[in-house]
Amino acid sequence: MRHTWRWFGPVDKVSVREAAQAGAQGIVSSLHHVPTGTAWTTEEVEKRQQEVRAGGLEWELVESIPVSESIKTMSGDWKAHIAAWQQSLRVLAKAGISTVCYNFMPVLDWTRTDLRWETPIGARAMRFDLIDFVAFDLHMLQRPNARAEFSAAVIEQADARFRAMSDEKKAALSRNIGAGLPGSSDGYSIGELTEALGRYAAIDAGRLRKNLIHFLSEVVPVAEELGMRLCAHGDDPPWPLLGLPRILSTEADYLEVLRGVDSMANGVTFCTGSLGVRPDNDLPAMLRRLAPKIHFFHLRNVRREEERMPCSFFEAEHLEGNTDMVAVIAAIVAEEKRRKAEGRSDHQIFMRPDHGQEILEDITRGAQPGYPAIGRLKGLAELRGIERTLSHASYGLA
């Protein structure tokens, strides 16, 4: 695997040089300051490349060029936004960057109720508490008809939870759920979130999937022409939220989109954390079947607190959650061997140690939630150790 590290630019509390010290071989970044729907320029891309090179590494993969809500709903300036997305691809290709990760989650990106939940050993981890989330939905957002989507037992717990919440807890919950893309300054107040949800009133999963396939029909030919690869990140968490549809939560979801625009330029970001929240997703088996079109791996682990959907969960240590990470990496090593035998130029697949618990000095560093220095270093070391072992000639996978 090609070991990369997500960097949020000069505002990141973890430097590129520290990423290199942690063992990263390349950087994953984005131009978070460029407004969504605006084409990236050569000047801005080159500036980010220079900032990364100053730390001793190269900007190798983009995560992400944001897909606007106008594109997702195919309303307003959506055609102009697609044109801007295509132009951004051309600028990146000229700069030598050939892989772009993106997501198509409506309104909310990955969603957590607590960004720094304290574990039993004093580490800090991101957590999704189902009861807190339902309490927000019912009592703070007051979404119409929301009660029809939850069981009586969950509603009873959520009602009690909300009654016991302090004003400080309510404010923090609202901030956490309304947060925008990681690294961006976007976010939603309750009023803005209600307005954003209204734009999806007539858009179900089928319609959203058609919109994604139409978007891909426009951008994939450009990517093919430029020799680039696009890879879609899955839903996080992988079930509908706030009445919004989710369309990349299972293997069947991915297959429908991959078949909708059949091209090697239309691929998958395989996130073991996002997909691993669902107990019905067999990740090693999914990986093997989707493998030829996986262009990027996010390797992280989550621990489900109940075996149901939806459920509460938290970001576990990389080897300690519900996902069998050894089996996952064995499947990756096997796929890389297969690609190399085929002569594929992309036989070494990008990965990054995704998220991570805040430990030791991370707790006071104040880095982007989920992206600590030491927690990710620990995760990368563990993942690299498994890869090195399974790639050794003694094990027959090399």
Rank of each mutant, 00 (worst) to 15 (best):
Arg147Leu: 02
Val257Glu: 11
Ala83Asn: 03
Tyr395Phe: 15
Ser312Pro: 10
Thr272Glu: 03
Gly267Ala: 08
Glu320Asn: 12
Pro292Phe: 04
Glu18Ile: 07
Asn145Gln: 14
Pro240Gly: 04
Thr41Tyr: 08
Ala22Trp: 13
His139Ala: 11
Gly234Asn: 07
Arg229Cys: 13
Arg124His: 15
Ala373His: 15
Gln157Ser: 07
Leu258Phe: 11
Ile332Ser: 03
Arg175Lys: 14
Gly122Lys: 00
Ala24His: 09
Val277Pro: 03
His295Phe: 13
Lys170Phe: 00
Glu218Ala: 01
Cys311Gln: 07
Gly96Glu: 08
Glu225Asp: 15
Arg209Ile: 05
Pro66Phe: 07
Gly76Asp: 09
Thr42Ser: 13
Asn103Arg: 00
Ser98Phe: 15
Ile65Gln: 03
Pro284Met: 02
Asp109Thr: 07
Glu256Lys: 14
Met228Glu: 07
Ile97Val: 15
Glu195Val: 15
Ile203Glu: 09
Ile349Gly: 06
Ala164Arg: 12
Arg259Thr: 11
Ile97Trp: 12
Pro10Val: 02
Asp354Gly: 01
Lys13Ala: 15
Glu361Arg: 05
Ile71Asn: 03
His355Met: 10
Val277Met: 05
Glu44Thr: 01
Ser345Thr: 13
Arg6Asp: 06
Pro221Ile: 10
His298Pro: 02
Gly191Ala: 01
Asp282Tyr: 01
His295Gly: 04
Ala158Ser: 02
Ile332Thr: 00
Ile71Cys: 03
Arg259Asn: 14
Val52Lys: 07
His298Trp: 06
Lys293Thr: 14
Gly96Leu: 12
Arg308Asn: 10
His32Gly: 15
Ala148Glu: 09
Thr272Pro: 08
Asn322Ala: 14
Arg48Leu: 15
Val16Gly: 03
Glu118Lys: 14
Thr194Gln: 12
Gly37Thr: 10
Ser174Pro: 05
Gly267Phe: 05
Pro106Asn: 03
Ile65Arg: 02
Val134Glu: 04
Asn301Met: 05
Ala291His: 09
Ile213Lys: 07
Glu218Phe: 11
Tyr254Asp: 07
Pro279Asp: 06
Phe296Gln: 10
Ser345Trp: 14
Ala201Thr: 12
Arg163Pro: 05
Ser185Leu: 13
Pro35His: 06
Ile247His: 10
Asp12Phe: 12
Asp253Tyr: 10
Lys340Trp: 12
Val52Glu: 11
Glu63Cys: 13
Leu230Arg: 02
Ala341Gln: 13
Glu358Phe: 06
Arg90Asp: 07
Ala158Asn: 03
Ala331Phe: 13
Gly321Tyr: 02
Gly183Ser: 05
Ser274Ala: 15
Ala367Pro: 11
Glu251Gln: 09
Trp239Ser: 00
Ala373Val: 12
Pro284Leu: 08
Ala316His: 13
Asp324Val: 07
Gly191Ser: 01
Glu218Cys: 14
Lys47Gln: 10
Ser274Thr: 08
Ala265Val: 12
Ala232Cys: 15
Ala160Arg: 01
Ser189Glu: 06
Ala341His: 00
Glu195Ala: 15
Arg338Met: 02
Ala148Leu: 11
Gly243Cys: 01
